[in-house]
């Protein structure tokens, strides 16, 4: 294949290309996934907790 000499070197060409395609496909499919900013998440959670405490105190 591709002018290469044996099975093992032909295989590594395929593996090398496939692993790159895996990275590209994974990156493309998940391009916009898991985009939650931790800092915002924690800040929101803290705000929610403070509000909760305030309500409890009022009650």
């Amino acid at each position: 294949m591709l002018g290469l000499g044996d099975f093992w070197v032909s295989l590594v060409f395929i593996l090398m290309i496939l692993s790159t395609i895996l990275c590209v496909v994974y990156g493309a499919l998940n391009w916009n996934k898991e985009g939650v900013d931790d800092a915002k998440l924690v800040a929101e959670e803290q705000k929610w907790e403070t509000e909760e405490k305030g309500i409890e105190e009022k009650l």
């Binding site: 990275c23 391009w31 898991e34």
Partner: peptide, 19 residues
């Protein structure tokens, strides 16, 4: 990086770069 989304995107760039 600020979220896992950046790592997802970096996988694409990194894979091609190392190749």
């Amino acid at each position: 990086v600020k979220s896992n989304r950046e790592l997802n995107r970096a996988v694409l760039v990194g894979g091609v770069f190392i190749l």
